[in-house]
Design a protein around this nucleic acid. Structure first.
Length: 425
RNA sequence: GGAGGGAUGGCUGAGUGGUUGAAAGCGCUGGUCUUGAAAACCAGUGUGCCCGCAAGGACACCGUGAGUUCGAAUCUCACUCCCUCCGCCA
């Protein structure tokens, strides 16, 4: 959420951000509610002051044996007046907060203009797409031939969009996220976290999934808990409602989690294979930083995600998202896409974002500067490091051989008890 | 699931209707003293929000939300969380 004072002073910039992110929050209404709210509060505060002063007279008068009934009558009128002011102000708090929660973050100054993905800018590429002397197969054929996945039974036990990994498939999945976690925790300075996969409403609101994306998430209604769409939610909320010491910053966490998404708006898209599924595995990186360093930290965060792909030897490109393609909470975001030669598509496997103080404000996460007074909001960042299923796809499709076998990258061998390739059984 | 107990500032802990945002101690920061440190002593030390250029001032906050009262940390109700014991359980 944005600073209300910032909105008061920059209404046009905020309105521009709302429309560039295709949102519909009513900034003008917010400002008029806010104006009225402050009037009411000021009046109430004056009456309260009066009340406090007068209430002190009661015991004094009683002590002198005076009749206090006139004073009490006066106080009763005052009390009703305060109550009325209070009620009217309270009634405005809900609408103010509702609108505030619906206003998206303002894109950073260097974010490219543009209203959709066509405005995105490719920043760099790494690696060459593999050349094949045969027509590379899509991953679902490779999975079939190698016996890695059982799509039919997954549908039977859960429904479409769910995956059962079997045998080498299950081992490869586990090897991949274990490799990624090890890389980030041993070489990139992240502390490993294993979070809950169900979180409460306050956590979902803190990172910005709620109130807008309620329909995108699986909800355990009996307990009002949500299945996490990404480990970003539990991990970023670790420090919700805290005041950190400046010396504690920056904090880096890396977490594996399963991720659950209803994909309600994407029904019918990418129905085949592993491209778009309701449950997938992901290693997520989360950073808490001082405001001054957050953009430098965003660059190194992207680098940490790229390191995963470089070690695996998978070609990718980094995309700087334009304003219109930026998510609700992000101020700046890079996507990393892997080339998947079987399906002949670039697949998004990472999204690295700086939220500046947008999430911190929602979750009331601050730090105390070692110099100077008061508190400041921390900056939060996160990035996939990286998302499975799609990584799994690219790996199979890039390293496939004509006979249907798949070569495994050397960095994974230790995680697979020395196994160097996947062979049809 | 059953039965009890509890929630106060960074921490410990007092406070059961009236200048209590809150005693005391610890911790922390600055100062005095000291060659330096410790000890001792002195001073300071929550957050939010509004008004103000500022100095400063007002208001709110004692788990959360309602209520009683002229006045609530203190009384009432609901909820949440934590602790202890019993039962159940991977």
């Amino acid at each position: 959420m944005l600073d209300l004072d910032f909105i008061r002073k920059n209404p046009e910039r905020v309105k521009a951000a709302v429309s560039s992110k295709h949102q519909s929050a009513d900034v003008a209404a917010l400002l008029s509610f806010d104006e009225r709210y402050r009037q009411l509060r000021a009046e109430r505060d004056r009456r309260r002051h009066e009340q406090t002063e007068k209430s002190k007279l009661v015991p004094q008068a009683k002590k002198r044996g005076e009749d206090v009934s006139a004073l009490l009558a006066e106080m009763n009128v005052l009390k009703d007046r305060i109550q009325a002011l209070e009620d009217e102000a309270k009634a405005l708090e809900g609408p103010i907060r509702d609108i505030l929660l619906q206003i998206p973050n303002v894109p950073a100054a260097d974010v490219p203009p543009g209203s959709d993905s066509t405005g995105n800018v490719e920043v760099r590429r790494w690696g060459d797409p593999p050349k094949f002397s045969f027509k590379p197969k899509p991953h679902w054929d490779l999975c079939q031939g190698l016996g890695l996945v059982d799509f039919e039974r997954a549908t039977k036990i859960s429904g479409s969009g769910f995956i059962v990994y079997l045998g080498d498939g299950a081992r490869l999945e586990r090897a991949l996220f274990q490799f990624m976690l090890d890389l980030h925790t041993t070489e990139h300075g992240y502390t490993e976290v294993f979070p809950p996969f169900l979180v409460n409403r306050a956590s979902m609101t803190g990172t910005g999934q709620l109130p807008k994306l309620e329909n995108e998430m699986y909800c355990a209604t009996a307990d009002d808990l949500f299945l996490i769409p990404t480990a970003e939610v539990p991990v970023t909320n670790l420090h919700r409602d805290e005041i950190l010491q400046e010396e504690a910053l920056p904090i880096f966490y890396a977490a594996y989690s399963a991720c659950f998404r209803r994909e309600a708006g994407a029904a019918g898209r990418d129905t085949r294979g592993l491209i778009r599924v309701h449950q997938f595995d992901k290693v997520e990186m989360v950073k808490f930083t001082r405001p001054e360093t957050s953009y430098a930290e965003l660059e190194s965060l992207v680098g940490n995600a790229e390191a995963v792909l470089q070690r695996l030897g998978l070609p990718y490109r980094v995309i700087h998202l334009c304003a219109g393609d930026l998510s609700f909470s992000a101020a700046k975001c890079y996507d990393i896409e892997l080339w998947a030669p079987g399906v002949e598509r670039w697949l998004e496997v990472s999204s690295c974002s700086n939220f500046e103080d947008f999430q911190a404000r929602r979750m009331n996460l601050r730090y105390r500067p070692s110099e100077g007074k008061g508190t400041r909001f921390v900056h939060t960042l996160n990035g996939s490091g990286v998302a499975l299923a799609r990584l799994f796809i690219a790996l199979l499709e890039c390293f496939q051989r004509e006979d249907g076998s798949v070569a495994l990258p050397e960095v994974l061998w230790p995680y697979l008890r020395g196994q160097k390739e996947l062979r049809p059984k």
